[in-house]
Write a protein that binds this DNA or RNA. Structure first.
Length: 506
RNA sequence: GGGGCGCUAGCUCAUCCGGUAGAGCAACGGACUUUUAAUCCGUUGGUGCGGGGUUCGAGUCCCCGGCGCCUCACCA
């Protein structure tokens, strides 16, 4: 079979690496001491001007190493555009300044994509570009595969996500997204740490996947001989810790839900969940406003972010709306009765909405809310007064036991946070679990399992507590302006590709 | 899961009605001491996502499959 372009390039580059070895240069060396990042040089020499005499003899020399992203050879003079984790800088190689043999070697055996090391003073060229004028340079790491084209770069979305390493090399703005994401995590940790919360890690492998309504991934522990699940939420473990006296606790890590993929859903996603004893969901509304408005300001420098054609404001206070009022508002019917099963069944029929299973008051009400209101809530909005049927872990409202003391925070039409005053009555909790089991019988395949140990923990006594979960990926989407979750996850899940032994894609 | 669109050289893209696949970048050889997508001369590179069908002839039309994107449904 004929040799493909890619095969030929790889062969040629392997031959270059071999030639370097024969000249005593290790093409995969690790013996070079870097003194400056490229950004350091750009910053420190911003005021440097061109000097026709060349650099003064006592000019400081700098040692840099970085990936070659462009190579311009002009005979006895060559320019290499370098990029490292901090930025870009130009490397200037002159035959009359370097050892001639070395100059010719770097010129001939280096390729775009290689890592190159160089030492020399910094100058400004005749055309105004800052450069290292190398008196010594060498190929530090040989690259065997060609990088995408310099002008259009890598744009194919599938390749960008599957080969994120190439995406990061070619598209510096991608690194910015993940810098912002790290900033979000850092801010949230600092915010909670300052308020006396303890960061913990609870099991991701669980024998009962509880704490949320979702389908889990199933696996198996060989030595124990038991089926296990990847957690869908850390909730029940964190509340066990509150029982144990860790009165402010949080966990920031992954959850796994065996559901469809979409631009808002990845099978594993990152959530911060925190619990605060002697607090109510109303306290968490205050805390959430403070956290998010501060976070947005910290990460973006403003309280307002652009979202598609809209602007989203994180100025406090955020809007508050009950589930029923959200329905009324978005249907434009302020006097609509939504108090009984007949009320909501009638409206469901009128709107042509498929009935949930089972079609009880709470599930039907939520179905209507999600259909008519949720996606229209662009500005940050706390939705409150959730029905008890869909909230098996939340504390009942004191005056209206059909509802629980819970909110969801909706931003950009999507649920970003979910919080409630926790149910700490073990008898009520046991009854709720039993209600969930009954709902499962009636067709709700995401209903909770009974968790006897959790009920036992509550029987020892959990102080009054409020807890909240915030979806980090969605916050990251909002703050980076991407409406695709894959843009804010380094390695989003995709169907596996078939890769041949030599690394070529079939 | 449903519907729509796409998949051609390593990358970014062409190829009109079905007539035997082309460019830029990259690579290779050469020239070149101030480039910024360097320039100039020359050269190479393709199982056209996979399989089947129709046809004298298929990248192009039809069918099956794969993968991706958009969208709807479900979910945070």
């Amino acid at each position: 079979m004929a040799e493909s372009t890619l095969d030929r390039i790889r062969r040629e580059r392997l031959e270059k690496a071999e030639a370097l070895r024969e000249m005593g240069i290790n093409p995969f060396a690790n013996d070079f001491a870097v003194t400056d990042s490229l950004a350091d040089l750009s910053r420190n020499y911003a005021d440097c001007v061109e000097n026709p005499e060349g650099p003064p003899a006592d000019a400081p020399r700098h040692s840099i190493a970085a990936r070659v992203v462009a190579k311009r050879v002009m005979g006895k003079l060559s320019f290499l555009r370098l990029r490292d984790g901090s930025g870009e800088f130009q490397l200037m190689l002159r035959k009359d300044i370097m050892d001639e043999e070395n100059y010719l070697r770097v010129r001939r055996y280096s390729d775009v994509g290689d890592f190159v090391a160089a030492t020399g003073p910094v100058i400004r060229t005749r055309t105004g570009e800052l450069s290292i004028l190398a008196d010594d340079a060498r190929i530090l790491t040989k690259s065997l595969r060609p990088l995408p084209e310099k002008w259009h770069g890598l744009t194919d979305v599938e390749t960008r996500f599957r080969q994120r390493y190439v995406d990061l090399v070619m598209n510096p703005e991608v690194r910015e997204v993940f810098r912002k994401r790290a900033g979000i995590l850092r801010y949230m940790r600092a915010f909670l740490d300052e308020r006396g919360f303890l960061e913990v890690e609870t099991p991701m492998l669980q024998t009962i996947a509880g704490g949320a309504a979702a389908k889990p991934f199933k696996t198996f522990h060989n030595a124990l001989g038991v089926p296990m699940f990847l957690r869908i939420a850390p909730e029940l473990y964190l509340k066990r810790l509150v029982v144990g006296g860790i009165e402010r606790v949080y966990e920031l890590n992954r959850n796994f839900r065996n559901e469809g993929l979409s631009h808002w859903h990845n099978p594993e996603f990152t959530m911060i969940e925190f619990y605060m004893a002697y607090a109510t969901y109303e306290d968490l509304i205050e805390l959430t406003e403070e956290l998010l408005s501060g976070l947005v300001l910290d990460v973006t420098g403003s309280h307002t972010i652009a979202w598609g054609d809209e602007e989203i404001s994180f100025e406090r206070p955020f809007q508050r709306l009950s589930v029923r009022d959200a329905i009324r508002t978005h249907l434009g019917r302020p006097d609509l009765a939504l108090e009984t099963l007949d009320d909501v069944l009638g409206l469901m029929g009128e709107l042509g909405i498929e009935p949930p299973k089972p079609a009880d008051y709470g599930r039907v009400l939520m179905e209507i809310y999600e259909t008519v209101a949720e996606s229209k809530l662009i500005q940050p909005t706390f939705i409150t007064e959730f029905p008890v049927e869909v909230s098996p872990l939340a504390r009942r409202n004191e005056t209206d036991p059909r509802f629980v003391d819970r909110f969801e925070l909706i931003i950009g039409g999507k649920e970003v946070a979910n919080a409630f005053s926790e149910l700490n009555d073990p008898v009520d909790q046991k009854g709720r679990f039993e209600g969930q089991l009954a709902a499962k019988e009636e067709g709700d395949d995401e209903a909770h399992e009974m968790d006897e140990d959790y009920v036992r923990a509550l029987e020892y006594g959990m102080p009054p507590t409020a807890g909240e979960g915030i979806g980090i990926d969605r916050i990251a989407m909002l703050l980076t302006g991407y409406n695709n979750i894959r843009e804010v996850i380094l390695f989003p899940h995709m169907r596996p590709e078939q890769v041949e032994e030599d690394g070529n894609v079939e």
